[in-house]
């Protein structure tokens, strides 16, 4: 694998081809905020908090660092007025759904996000997909999945599978950035009476 040299926040960074900007940044201790990212899982690119500014041949654009592959001589900025503005807006959009999430509150403080910017619609879930992907990719049980699309998208357990698999696992619980999953799971358990 060839070595790729590029720049993050003015620092020269060496990375292996095929790595993402996020991986390369973290390998040298540069922080980029994320919600839907997890080392054990395939990059998903849904929360967009990891958005950074990239100059490719003097062409600047915003990209999701968790899925953008490193390339020779690119220049990355992990903070800028625009990046911060976008992260703030994303957090505000999230906070409408999960105003009490500690993880979100911490980030909100850093980016000056106002949790009251949008009307509250406390659904808890922010669709980061960590539980769904973990159950699929790591556990390969597929007890929890997504349903529907757009703003109606939700997570949903398959009761028959959940009844067999989840009780002794619950590994997705600590992954959830809003602790919503537990609520959904408990609800689903309550609703489902296993057939004898």
């Amino acid at each position: 694998m060839s070595e790729i040299i590029f720049e993050i926040d003015g620092k020269e960074v060496k990375a292996k081809a095929g790595m993402t900007i996020l991986e390369a940044a973290r390998s040298v201790g540069i922080k980029i905020p994320t919600l839907c990212h997890h080392e054990a899982l395939e990059p998903f690119g849904s929360c967009r908090l990891c958005t950074v500014e990239v100059d490719v041949r003097s062409w600047t654009s915003l990209v999701a660092s968790c899925v953008y592959p490193v390339a020779q001589n690119i220049v990355v900025r992990t903070r800028s007025a625009k990046v911060d503005r976008i992260r703030k807006m994303i957090l505000e959009l999230y906070l409408a759904h999960a105003p009490d999430s500690f993880e979100l509150q911490d980030m909100a403080q850093e980016y000056g996000a106002d949790k009251n910017r949008f009307e509250k619609e406390a659904s808890f879930c922010i669709h980061c997909g960590l539980c769904v992907r973990y159950c699929n990719e790591v556990k390969q049980k597929n007890a929890v999945g997504f349903v529907d699309r757009g703003s109606r998208k939700e997570i949903c357990f398959i009761p028959e599978i959940a009844a067999q698999e989840c009780w002794d696992c619950k590994e997705c619980f600590p992954l959830c950035p809003t602790e919503a999953l537990q609520a959904a799971f408990v609800l689903s358990q309550a609703l489902y009476t296993p057939q004898k």
Binding site: S46, R48, L93, F146, D148, R149, G150, S151, R152
Partner: peptide, 21 residues
Amino acid sequence: LADESCGKCVPCREGTRQMLK
């Protein structure tokens, strides 16, 4: 678009929802 958004990324899913409101 709010109806047809796939719902994967936030700027589109939540952004169109709020814009629609």
